[in-house]
Design a protein around this nucleic acid. Sequence first.
RNA 1: GUGAGCGUAGCUCAGCUGGUAGAGCUCCUGGUUGUGGUCCAGGUGGUCGCCGGUUCGAAUCCGGUCGCUCACCCCA
Length: 411
Amino acid sequence: MAERFQAPRGTFDVLPADAALRERVEAASRELLGRAGYLRIETPAFEDTELFARGVGESTDIVRKEMFTFEDQGGRSITLRPEGTASIARAYLEHGMQKLPQPVKLWWHGPVFRHERPQAGRFRQFTQLDAEAIGSDSPLVDAELIILLDELLRGLEVPALELRLGSLGSPQARAEYRRELISYLRDQAAELAEDVRERIDENPLRAFDSKHEGTRAVMAEAPTMLDRLDAEDSEHFATVRRLLEQAGIKYRLDGTLVRGLDYYTRTVFEFHCGGLGAQSQVAGGGRYDGLVELLGGPATPGCGWAAGIERILLALEGEEPPPRPDVFVAAAEGERERALALATELRHAGLRAELDLAGRGMKGQMRHADRLGVANAVILDEGGAMQLRDMRSGEQREIDVANVVEELAAR
RNA sequence: GUGAGCGUAGCUCAGCUGGUAGAGCUCCUGGUUGUGGUCCAGGUGGUCGCCGGUUCGAAUCCGGUCGCUCACCCCA
């Protein structure tokens, strides 16, 4: 037991029972994003470490302690992608997509890696669905992306959804606000909970989430980022809000949204699902107007989101039974090879056909057919005769070899 | 990285205050020469996570270790 291999910590197998639901999520996103003109892109699962260090930000938890980084045989530092946006921005630049009509709208889904301690809804390898629109600073872009994400989650019937919406403004405004908040907290330190006080410099925004009474009183009076937006950012945000309201999308205004990646500017948002455990965030994203430039390109606005497929699946909670075959071909001892040929023929006709591959006796084959849940069985008798059996009624009659395929296809 | 709970057959679990492993489900075979779903009988399958200690003897007690789960942190 102990010596048996196990999937590495924080990873999992997608078993057949899980596959159908997962495919439904993938199909829904492909369909929805396709209709909105988002085009599919695939980037490598690993990149130059520096891309993430620069793109995501040296000071973020992701870069500081969550990356799977290794040296390849040529001495290059390589990192399994901990998120997708930096790769998309890299591809945008590498392939000169500035020359395309803007914005360039892209989507992808695939594995993402973060070296974290696993827990409910948190894995070391998980799957993200990403949508990105690069090259326009119009608030229409922000709104379109949020509307699409909302439709996706709602269409999948993710329960107890909540959209939180905020704006971070420009990097400068954000930095100024942060300084202001830190000094405000320092002044009020005596009233704050101990854990909040200890993290004033580390993460002052977190004070807003505290359940501590004294802290809550202090925070009720604290300035929020939304109060400190400059005129342009403020107008941009107001337009995004108006567009969402026109689209009938409910949201909770949240001036304390942080996002753990440095590249976010202006609009930020998260979708949460109640009853998901501690990791309730199902999707999140925002605008990143400085990212492309940060990676060495021209000043280029961008906006996008990532949805966690596993968290969505967790919220949907369920398995779908594997598809049932239409027909099972059972064969007497000497007829096994004919069974394969017939099954192949039936498959050509578009039917799901199975046969015994384990050397079962007739009783075993019928039992197996029953468990597969087939509606019909074809039984090949010794000597060439053939029976067609209706597995529900138990009715059975001899049938002509020439007619089996037709007969079954018609059912 | 920190904390808490758990770790017995493929799955769900039982095994009281220590005496050298069980049930249900699943799977396979058979129930008078090859026909299913109910029922009956039988079978496959576990060095009780691992290492060490206490003991005449440990799945059962103690220590360590690994793993899983949940939470903190942070994020999808």
